[in-house]
Write a protein that binds this DNA or RNA. Sequence first.
DNA 1: AGCGTTAATTATCTTTTGTTAACTGCACCA
DNA 2: TGGTGCAGTTAACAAAAGATAATTAACGCT
Lengths: 197, 197
Amino acid sequence: MLTPEDIQFYLGIFKDLSFTDLYELFKMAQAKRIPAGDVYIEQGATAKKLGFIRKGLIRAHCVKDNGDNVTLMLRWENQFIASHDTLILNQPSRFTYQALEDTTLMELDYGRMEAILDSNPKLSSYRNVILMRMLSEALERMESFVLFTPEERYLKLLTEKPNIFNRVPNKYLATLLGITPVSLSRIRKRITQAPKR
Amino acid sequence: MLTPEDIQFYLGIFKDLSFTDLYELFKMAQAKRIPAGDVYIEQGATAKKLGFIRKGLIRAHCVKDNGDNVTLMLRWENQFIASHDTLILNQPSRFTYQALEDTTLMELDYGRMEAILDSNPKLSSYRNVILMRMLSEALERMESFVLFTPEERYLKLLTEKPNIFNRVPNKYLATLLGITPVSLSRIRKRITQAPKR
DNA sequence: AGCGTTAATTATCTTTTGTTAACTGCACCA
DNA sequence: TGGTGCAGTTAACAAAAGATAATTAACGCT
């Protein structure tokens, strides 16, 4: 059930949608609470669900053949969270999605949502907006690997999302940046010791 | 004007679309030829155009502050090519899109296309398919930077698109992989000298 | 208080990459 | 034929990152 506060909240986020469209979309969503440490989507899962994080933090990771634990993605407040493998590629999720904090999210069954979206042009075009936002985020991250050094990527994350370092262990952030935790520690040291100019 | 061969071709590519829908989409497209070396989209350009490459190869690149010339993306046959900056972010293109070979593409004015897409639910849903394909490509590339070493990324490209190495100078492929041309040369040497097992 | 767990840092060493510059091979061309 | 330009390789050195292990710090728990 949506409270007035919820409605206020969602109208703020989804500025382009009318109230009725918004209601159409969210009346089939249900709130879900995930305690810190719990897994939201198991590796190998095939369920097509789409979550919108209202509070908390979810980490997508996998374990490589050599045993390395690698963070693929972090998602936090006001972001969508879903397994791209199941939603886009229609295959079992290669990654595990786990809450790092107590997390509350609105969850939609993607199959049901698709039907509603397809029958409502306004909502359908909103799906495009969401897809394009996700695409631009993915491209920006991809570009950062080509354009920037690990140290520059660290500084970028530091300026764009400073409080993430208080919420997520460095070892998870390191692999997100494409480096090892040891290397991240060295980068941090280099920067604090850097000559001020 | 679409020839029967064109129609045959596009029906093969866009399997999910009916002929009439396809015609609707492509009657506003026009063929364009770009000689090898010519720029398709200038850095700073704002025109919203969407190209579909029928033949040839286009490279997106930029020049960093330190003078480094970096390849962001390569697109080839049966792929869409567009400046994400102009289409998605509505900002001037940060990159230059240049043909590395004589390239022929079908070009659409994205503004006009949007109007047609919005008025045709079937086409609109097809836009989603395209966006999702682009998103999965971007995510896969992004993941490759987190999961694989430069050497592994090179081997991945080699197996997935072997003939690209005959079509694109190594120095462009190197920066695409996130390394320098010198480093790519060393990787190639390491691999050819690797003990066979 | 003492124990155990885990994250983070530090140390040591190896491997890889970046940087710069020299060298090689090749195409183009006057 | 010799010169010019450029891609690719190689060399030499510096810088950074990976691997492994030891150390430190923080926290919860009995």
